Computed example of a mutant assay.
Amino acid sequence: MTLIAKLCQVSLTTVLRVLKSVETQLPHQLKSQRFPDVLMVDEFKSHASREDKMSFICADGKTGELVDILPSRTLNKLTVYFNRMPLEEQKKVKFLVTDMNAAYFQLTKTGFPTANIIIDRFHVIKHLNTAFNEFRVREMKVLIRQKKNSEANKLKSNWKFLLKNQQNISISEFKTWRSFPSPKYPILTKSMMIDRLLSFSANLKEAYDIFQLLTYHFRNKDGQSFFDLLKNLPNNLDKLFKDKLENLLAYETGIRNALLYDFSNGKIEAKDTHIKTLKRVSYGFKSFHNMRIRILLINGLIKIK
């Protein structure tokens, strides 16, 4: 906006006044509170003064078109906003695609009575990766207490290999590894190198097998096998790791829907990235109102006449 002011030889206040004036050209669907049958919801950091730090964003789950942005993601404010729609419009929303934010689950009760929850698949995989990675760190600390610093350092430097899809790990390509240098160690395949890492801890090996089996069922969209395994985890599995995995049982309906339908939050996550870039090049926004107008402009929802 400072650049525009210099190029047009006007004050920054004039640029801000013109920016605010384009809000009158909002498209009809934002004013009439119409929503698509598949609605993606998410939040992003706004840091606007006098507003909640986390703002709410929703978009069309089929086209990816931005629907609206709200200054707060709290349930009471979202309920007031969505309940302004007629009940017929609320019932048109068939699917609500979200992450594991519990507040959004309540929207199906207060705002969209006929909508089904779909948990974004990325967040399920992220939850599994985080659970296993936290357990790996705890096992590293155990090795350090046992004076096995070399083994702990190898687990630390090669952590990414343990999170890789086991189906894509090479079992035939031999090479040298920085953590297992020759001539002390022979050349190893990626699979053999991972086996050496897992040999440092029996508990880690057991957790790795469970983690890989869960991700295998999930990637193959086998909901029955996925939840059968979650409900019958071994009793000797690390308690914290087991509890973290079993937390997914609270989202069973949404995860099963995610395996049945192809909707995800990918398009709205891309919009979050664009918003982060806008905030960075603008050095942040003090006013949420101005930020919202800028976001609607870059998404093409305001057509300048």
Rank of each mutant, 00 (worst) to 15 (best):
L66C: 11
G64Y: 02
K62P: 09
K62G: 09
M85H: 10
N83S: 15
M85K: 09
L66E: 08
L66W: 07
K62M: 10
N76D: 14
R73G: 05
G64F: 06
G61C: 06
F82V: 05
T79C: 13
A59W: 01
L66G: 10
R84I: 14
Y81M: 05
F56Y: 03
K77Q: 05
V67T: 10
E65P: 09
D68I: 12
C58R: 05
K77F: 06
N83Y: 13
L75D: 02
T74L: 06
K62Q: 12
T79D: 11
I69L: 14
L78T: 06
S72T: 12
N83M: 15
S72Y: 06
R84P: 13
R84E: 15
T63V: 09
D60S: 14
I69V: 14
Y81R: 01
D68Y: 15
P71H: 05
T74G: 01
T74K: 10
I69H: 09
L66S: 11
L70N: 06
S72N: 12
F56N: 00
G61W: 02
Y81E: 04
L78R: 06
L78W: 07
F82H: 01
T74R: 08
F56G: 00
P71W: 03
L75N: 07
K62E: 12
Y81V: 04
A59H: 04
F56V: 01
F56K: 01
T63S: 14
L75V: 07
V67L: 12
A59V: 04
F82T: 00
E65K: 11
C58P: 09
L78G: 05
L70I: 14
C58D: 04
T79S: 12
L75K: 08
I69C: 15
V80G: 04
K77D: 00
L75M: 11
T74W: 00
P71S: 08
N83G: 13
D68W: 13
L70M: 15
I57H: 00
N76S: 12
L66T: 09
R73F: 07
D60P: 15
G64M: 01
C58Q: 05
G64D: 03
D60F: 13
I69M: 10
R73Q: 05
K62H: 11
K77Y: 04
K77L: 10
M85T: 11
I69Q: 07
N76Y: 12
P71T: 03
N76E: 11
T79H: 10
